[in-house]
């Protein structure tokens, strides 16, 4: 357990204005829990993959407003912290089959990308070190491949959207770019299609039927020993 009270390593953090003494070797999320906060929202995988724990902070002596994932970023002394567990954004619904991999796909659903100032605030806010402005610009000129590749590591935490002065929601654009890329540029994944064909041909029917016949205990036993059997 990391929550060992090591006096020499304690730091002070300020969560929404309230100060707490916490061990310095904790992430923001664990430090907040140490200080008594309970996460009902704004916490998900705890592994840096889900994007639920977007957090903004400043450190003492600096004007910079920084962004991080609470489950990844280690606390620092005199860190001023606020959670941004949700960014309000309209998510457009579209049928990917009706779209084409061009600029119009973005302009029709997210025309606000035309308001991009190239200020790069989004890139500076991104905890995943993605070139956010560059992919927004690529989308604006219809370069779907570039937008999809640059945004590949996006986890939709929303920090870019909160900071954008042009009121763009970059992660929605990134998601559309990747969908268009996989549908129209990269094309279908052949190995998935092959596996699907095998399923349809009944290759796994016997195995599935066997699993369905097992009782709860036997299923549990199978699950727990799955790695040994592989």
């Amino acid at each position: 357990m990391i929550m060992e009270n090591n006096e020499s390593n304690m730091v002070t953090i300020h969560v929404m204005g309230k100060s707490h003494e916490v061990p310095g070797d904790l992430t923001i999320m664990k430090a907040m829990e140490y200080a008594g906060h309970q996460f009902r929202r704004g916490s998900g995988c705890r592994g840096g993959y889900c994007g639920a724990c977007a957090t903004i902070y400043r450190t003492k002596g600096s004007y910079k407003l920084l962004g991080a994932l609470a489950c990844q970023k280690m606390v620092e002394d005199d860190m001023y912290i606020a959670q941004i567990p949700f960014s309000p954004a309209e998510k457009k619904s579209y049928d990917i089959n009706d779209l084409r991999a061009d600029a119009n796909a973005f302009m029709v659903h997210y025309p606000e990308i035309s308001r991009c100032l190239s200020c790069n605030t989004c890139t500076k806010a991104c905890p995943q070190d993605i070139m956010v402005m560059d992919y927004v610009q690529a989308a604006l000129r219809g370069d779907v491949s570039e937008a999809a590749k640059l945004s590949f590591d996006c986890i939709s935490c929303g920090l870019c959207a909160i900071r954008c002065p042009a009121e763009i929601v970059p992660y929605n654009i990134a998601q559309l770019a990747r969908r268009l890329y996989s549908k129209y540029v990269d094309g279908p994944a052949e190995h998935v299609l092959e596996k699907l064909k095998e399923v349809e041909e009944g290759k796994f029917d016997a195995e599935i039927a066997e699993l369905q016949s097992l009782d709860r205990e036997a299923l549990k036993e199978r699950y727990e020993t799955r790695e040994k059997r592989l």
Binding site: C116, L117, S118, M133, D134, Q137, L140, R141
Partner: peptide, 11 residues
């Protein structure tokens, strides 16, 4: 004519 790398909208 060599396209400028990483160009962005001029505004």
């Amino acid at each position: 004519l060599v396209e400028l790398p990483r160009w962005n909208c001029c505004g």
